[in-house]
Simulated scan of single mutants.
Amino acid sequence: MTRQGYFSGPPPVEAAPTPTAKTSNQLKWDIAAAAQTTLPYNGLDVQARQDGKGYKLLVLAKDVTWIDEDEGSRRAEATIMVVCYNVKGKELLHKSIEEKERIPAGTDVDHGQHVAFPFAFDVPEKTSRIRFVVRDAGTGHIGTADVNLK
């Protein structure tokens, strides 16, 4: 027999996450998993174009979540990751950034327009394939683009 308060009782139970909620670790894993495969992800329509010292990632504007700003413009946010591989599939470069792009109020985003996210980086010398992963901050949708150099 024990008296009241002698044992602390059962440990507190954390609330179960909702089915749509994701932790930041899960999101990081989703992006990293998309970068380490050759499987195309098409949650976002992504195209990579070489642009000066780096690449410009074109994403179909209607696929991105737009946030209205106070001054009337709209803003889209994305997490972008680039991974460069050599001919044997060894990772040579791994870099990610958070990028924002603004457009003027009233811009038509529903008829094939693209938003451009710039990504400057130095391509390692023995790179044969570059994998870009773009994740929309609003919906979590992921799209990929691959560039074969050799």
Rank of each mutant, 00 (worst) to 15 (best):
D68M: 07
F7R: 14
P17I: 07
N42T: 15
D136M: 03
K88F: 05
M81Y: 08
G140E: 03
L149T: 02
L27Y: 08
G138C: 04
V123L: 07
N42G: 09
R3G: 14
S24D: 11
A35I: 00
G89L: 06
G138H: 01
V83G: 09
V133R: 10
H94P: 01
G54V: 10
A15L: 08
T2Q: 14
R75Q: 08
S128D: 08
V64Y: 07
I31A: 01
T2N: 14
S24T: 13
A120G: 11
V147M: 05
I80Q: 06
Q47E: 13
W66R: 13
R102F: 07
A145P: 00
P17W: 00
A120S: 15
T107G: 15
K126L: 15
K56P: 03
E77V: 10
T139L: 01
V59G: 09
Q50H: 08
I130E: 07
L92G: 09
P40Q: 06
V115R: 00
E91K: 15
N148I: 04
E69K: 14
R131W: 10
G72W: 10
G54E: 10
N148R: 05
P40C: 03
P104H: 14
L39F: 13
L149S: 04
K28G: 11
T23K: 09
L44F: 07
H141G: 09
S128R: 11
Q4S: 15
A35L: 08
P40L: 10
L44Q: 03
D68V: 07
F119S: 01
G43R: 10
P12M: 03
A137S: 12
D110L: 14
G9F: 03
D70N: 11
L60G: 01
T79S: 13
K150N: 07
K22S: 06
Q47V: 09
L92Q: 11
I31D: 01
A35G: 09
T23V: 00
K62D: 14
N86C: 06
P17Q: 02
A35M: 09
I142V: 06
A137T: 04
K90I: 02
T107E: 14
D51P: 03
T23I: 01
K90E: 03
N86S: 08
H141A: 15
R135N: 01
V133N: 09
S128V: 04
E98I: 06
V147F: 01
A116N: 10
E91H: 06
L39P: 04
V64A: 06
V134S: 05
H141P: 00
V82K: 02
M1I: 03
S96T: 14
L58H: 09
G5Q: 10
G72R: 03
V133S: 02
V83L: 14
I103C: 02
W66M: 09
Q36V: 12
G106P: 04
F7S: 11
A137I: 00
E101R: 15
Q47W: 04
G52R: 12
R135C: 01
G106I: 02
R135P: 00
L39S: 15
W66Y: 11
P40F: 07
E69F: 04
F132T: 04
D146A: 06
